[in-house]
């Protein structure tokens, strides 16, 4: 009887997890956002606006 209960519990948990996975497979919102950002970076070229750090501003933190 105990074993039957555990099997039922494990099956139930698997069902809950499977449901979560199904929802995520339905539409991967986070992946779509990343895809949109990659396209926008490419089309709008926004990253080029950011100034690259100048060569003269090197850090001299490591002293002997």
């Amino acid at each position: 009887m105990k074993t039957v209960g555990k099997v039922a519990w494990v099956t139930g948990m698997a069902g809950v997890l499977a449901a979560c996975v199904t929802i995520n497979i339905y539409f991967p919102a986070a992946a779509a956002e990343r895809a949109a950002d990659r396209v926008i970076d490419e089309v709008w070229q926004l990253r080029k606006d950011a100034q690259p750090p100048s060569a003269g501003a090197e850090k001299t933190g490591e002293t002997q």
Partner: peptide
């Protein structure tokens, strides 16, 4: 035993989840 099965299930399903959240092909 059941908890090991459950751990394996959780692993398998979260791996599947990671797959579902992998990058879209553009």
């Amino acid at each position: 035993k059941p908890s090991r099965i459950l751990a394996a299930l959780v692993f398998a399903l979260t791996t599947g989840l990671a797959f579902a959240q992998a990058n879209l092909d553009i």
